[in-house]
Protein backbone atom coordinates (compact mmCIF):
# COMPACT_ATOMS: atom_id res chain seq x y z
CA UNK A 1 0.00 0.00 0.00
CA UNK A 2 2.53 2.55 -1.05
CA UNK A 3 1.81 6.23 -1.38
CA UNK A 4 2.04 5.99 -5.14
CA UNK A 5 -0.70 3.36 -5.26
CA UNK A 6 -2.99 5.50 -3.13
CA UNK A 7 -2.39 8.54 -5.32
CA UNK A 8 -2.91 6.50 -8.47
CA UNK A 9 -6.17 4.97 -7.30
CA UNK A 10 -7.72 8.23 -6.10
CA UNK A 11 -6.55 10.42 -8.94
CA UNK A 12 -7.19 7.73 -11.51
CA UNK A 13 -10.73 7.35 -10.27
CA UNK A 14 -11.26 11.11 -10.42
CA UNK A 15 -9.82 11.26 -13.93
CA UNK A 16 -11.94 8.36 -15.18
CA UNK A 17 -15.16 9.64 -13.62
CA UNK A 18 -14.70 13.18 -14.88
CA UNK A 19 -13.81 11.92 -18.36
CA UNK A 20 -17.07 9.99 -18.44
CA UNK A 21 -18.86 13.06 -17.08
CA UNK A 22 -17.56 15.20 -19.93
CA UNK A 23 -19.08 12.82 -22.43
CA UNK A 24 -22.37 12.39 -20.58
CA UNK A 25 -23.02 15.91 -19.36
CA UNK A 26 -25.81 17.88 -21.00
CA UNK A 27 -24.67 21.31 -19.87
CA UNK A 28 -21.64 22.56 -21.79
CA UNK A 29 -20.29 24.68 -18.94
CA UNK A 30 -20.41 21.71 -16.58
CA UNK A 31 -18.57 19.66 -19.18
CA UNK A 32 -15.79 22.27 -19.30
CA UNK A 33 -15.46 22.20 -15.53
CA UNK A 34 -15.32 18.41 -15.53
CA UNK A 35 -12.56 18.51 -18.09
CA UNK A 36 -10.61 20.98 -15.94
CA UNK A 37 -10.89 18.60 -13.00
CA UNK A 38 -9.73 15.77 -15.27
CA UNK A 39 -6.68 17.77 -16.34
CA UNK A 40 -5.91 18.46 -12.71
CA UNK A 41 -6.09 14.79 -11.79
CA UNK A 42 -3.79 13.89 -14.66
CA UNK A 43 -1.37 16.62 -13.56
CA UNK A 44 -1.23 15.02 -10.10
CA UNK A 45 -0.50 11.69 -11.78
CA UNK A 46 2.35 13.37 -13.63
CA UNK A 47 3.70 14.56 -10.29
CA UNK A 48 3.55 10.97 -9.05
CA UNK A 49 5.62 10.02 -12.11
CA UNK A 50 8.29 12.64 -11.24
CA UNK A 51 7.35 14.85 -14.16
CA UNK A 52 7.35 18.16 -12.33
CA UNK A 53 7.72 20.59 -15.19
CA UNK A 54 5.12 18.89 -17.37
CA UNK A 55 2.64 18.72 -14.48
CA UNK A 56 2.81 22.45 -13.84
CA UNK A 57 2.82 23.22 -17.54
CA UNK A 58 -0.33 21.16 -17.86
CA UNK A 59 -2.05 23.19 -15.14
CA UNK A 60 -0.67 26.49 -16.39
CA UNK A 61 -1.36 26.05 -20.11
CA UNK A 62 -3.97 23.34 -20.50
CA UNK A 63 -6.19 23.87 -17.48
CA UNK A 64 -5.42 27.53 -17.05
CA UNK A 65 -5.55 28.92 -20.55
CA UNK A 66 -6.99 26.49 -23.09
CA UNK A 67 -9.95 25.57 -20.94
CA UNK A 68 -10.65 29.22 -20.21
CA UNK A 69 -10.80 29.69 -23.97
CA UNK A 70 -13.36 26.88 -24.17
CA UNK A 71 -15.33 28.47 -21.36
CA UNK A 72 -15.33 31.86 -23.09
CA UNK A 73 -16.60 30.33 -26.31
CA UNK A 74 -19.36 28.39 -24.55
CA UNK A 75 -20.51 31.48 -22.71
CA UNK A 76 -20.26 33.79 -25.67
CA UNK A 77 -22.19 31.52 -28.00
CA UNK A 78 -24.54 30.59 -25.18
CA UNK A 79 -24.77 26.97 -26.14
CA UNK A 80 -26.22 25.10 -23.26
CA UNK A 81 -27.25 21.91 -24.84
CA UNK A 82 -30.23 22.26 -27.13
CA UNK A 83 -28.21 20.79 -29.96
CA UNK A 84 -28.63 17.20 -28.91
CA UNK A 85 -32.31 17.19 -29.70
CA UNK A 86 -31.91 16.62 -33.42
CA UNK A 87 -32.45 13.10 -34.70
CA UNK A 88 -29.75 10.65 -35.52
CA UNK A 89 -29.02 10.35 -39.19
CA UNK A 90 -28.40 6.63 -38.94
CA UNK A 91 -30.60 4.85 -36.52
CA UNK A 92 -29.14 3.45 -33.33
CA UNK A 93 -26.02 5.62 -33.59
CA UNK A 94 -25.39 5.84 -29.86
CA UNK A 95 -25.48 2.12 -29.02
CA UNK A 96 -23.28 1.43 -32.05
CA UNK A 97 -20.75 3.96 -30.81
CA UNK A 98 -20.75 2.43 -27.36
CA UNK A 99 -20.21 -1.02 -28.80
CA UNK A 100 -17.33 0.20 -30.92
CA UNK A 101 -15.88 1.83 -27.86
CA UNK A 102 -16.00 -1.41 -25.94
CA UNK A 103 -14.39 -3.14 -28.89
CA UNK A 104 -11.59 -0.59 -28.83
CA UNK A 105 -11.01 -1.14 -25.14
CA UNK A 106 -10.93 -4.89 -25.68
CA UNK A 107 -8.39 -4.38 -28.42
CA UNK A 108 -6.18 -2.27 -26.18
CA UNK A 109 -6.41 -4.82 -23.38
CA UNK A 110 -5.44 -7.65 -25.70
CA UNK A 111 -2.59 -5.62 -27.12
CA UNK A 112 -1.43 -4.54 -23.70
CA UNK A 113 -1.41 -8.00 -22.14
CA UNK A 114 1.96 -8.51 -23.75
CA UNK A 115 3.17 -5.34 -22.10
CA UNK A 116 2.27 -6.45 -18.61
CA UNK A 117 5.57 -8.21 -18.00
CA UNK A 118 7.73 -5.13 -18.40
CA UNK A 119 11.00 -5.02 -16.57
CA UNK A 120 10.75 -2.84 -13.52
CA UNK A 121 11.45 0.83 -13.98
CA UNK A 122 14.99 2.04 -14.49
CA UNK A 123 16.25 4.09 -11.60
CA UNK A 124 16.11 7.81 -12.20
CA UNK A 125 18.50 10.53 -11.21
CA UNK A 126 17.61 13.35 -8.89
CA UNK A 127 16.88 16.01 -11.46
CA UNK A 128 14.58 13.85 -13.54
CA UNK A 129 11.64 15.81 -14.87
CA UNK A 130 12.93 19.17 -13.77
CA UNK A 131 12.97 22.16 -16.06
CA UNK A 132 16.70 21.87 -16.52
CA UNK A 133 16.52 18.32 -17.83
CA UNK A 134 13.58 19.00 -20.11
CA UNK A 135 15.30 22.12 -21.41
CA UNK A 136 18.50 20.20 -22.06
CA UNK A 137 16.71 17.51 -24.01
CA UNK A 138 14.54 20.00 -25.85
CA UNK A 139 17.25 22.33 -27.01
CA UNK A 140 20.00 19.83 -27.60
CA UNK A 141 18.07 16.99 -29.14
CA UNK A 142 14.85 18.36 -30.49
CA UNK A 143 15.67 21.86 -31.59
CA UNK A 144 14.04 21.53 -35.01
CA UNK A 145 10.65 20.36 -33.64
CA UNK A 146 10.81 23.22 -31.17
CA UNK A 147 11.25 25.79 -33.91
CA UNK A 148 8.55 24.19 -36.03
CA UNK A 149 6.20 24.31 -33.03
CA UNK A 150 6.82 28.01 -32.67
CA UNK A 151 5.88 28.48 -36.33
CA UNK A 152 2.79 26.37 -35.68
CA UNK A 153 1.83 28.71 -32.85
CA UNK A 154 2.35 31.70 -35.11
CA UNK A 155 0.07 30.11 -37.70
CA UNK A 156 -2.54 29.47 -35.01
CA UNK A 157 -2.41 33.06 -33.79
CA UNK A 158 -2.76 34.49 -37.28
CA UNK A 159 -5.48 31.99 -38.10
CA UNK A 160 -7.60 32.72 -35.07
CA UNK A 161 -7.32 36.47 -35.56
CA UNK A 162 -8.42 36.09 -39.20
CA UNK A 163 -11.27 33.76 -38.27
CA UNK A 164 -12.62 35.98 -35.55
CA UNK A 165 -12.70 39.11 -37.64
CA UNK A 166 -16.04 40.32 -38.82
CA UNK A 167 -16.60 40.64 -42.56
CA UNK A 168 -17.12 44.38 -42.61
CA UNK A 169 -13.84 45.11 -40.86
CA UNK A 170 -10.75 45.73 -42.84
Amino acid sequence: MTAELVVFVTMGAVAAVTAAAVVISKNAVHAVIYLVINLFAIAVLYLALSAQLVAFLQILIYAGAIMVLFLFTVMMLNMTGAIEMTDDKLSKQKPLALMLGLLLIAEVVVGAVGLLNQPSAVAIGEGFGSAKEVGNRLFFGYLLPFEITSILLLAAIVGSVVLARRKDDD
Binding site: V29, I33, V36, Q52, L53, F56, L57, I59, L60, A63, G64, A65, V68, L71, F72, M75, E126, G127, G129, S130, A131
Partner: peptide, 27 residues
Protein backbone atom coordinates in the same frame (compact mmCIF):
# COMPACT_ATOMS: atom_id res chain seq x y z
CA UNK B 1 12.64 15.66 0.89
CA UNK B 2 14.05 18.14 -1.63
CA UNK B 3 12.35 21.37 -2.43
CA UNK B 4 9.78 21.53 -5.17
CA UNK B 5 11.73 21.92 -8.37
CA UNK B 6 9.43 24.25 -10.24
CA UNK B 7 8.42 26.56 -7.42
CA UNK B 8 7.60 29.64 -9.41
CA UNK B 9 5.58 27.64 -11.91
CA UNK B 10 3.24 26.59 -9.13
CA UNK B 11 2.48 30.21 -8.30
CA UNK B 12 1.92 31.12 -11.94
CA UNK B 13 -0.24 28.03 -12.49
CA UNK B 14 -2.47 28.83 -9.54
CA UNK B 15 -2.81 32.45 -10.46
CA UNK B 16 -4.01 31.38 -13.88
CA UNK B 17 -6.59 29.15 -12.18
CA UNK B 18 -7.98 32.21 -10.46
CA UNK B 19 -9.47 33.28 -13.78
CA UNK B 20 -12.06 30.51 -13.41
CA UNK B 21 -13.45 32.04 -10.26
CA UNK B 22 -13.98 35.36 -11.99
CA UNK B 23 -15.55 34.08 -15.18
CA UNK B 24 -17.73 31.49 -13.47
CA UNK B 25 -19.02 33.95 -10.91
CA UNK B 26 -19.97 36.27 -13.73
CA UNK B 27 -21.75 33.52 -15.59
Amino acid sequence: VPELDAGILLVLAFSSLGVYGVVLSGW
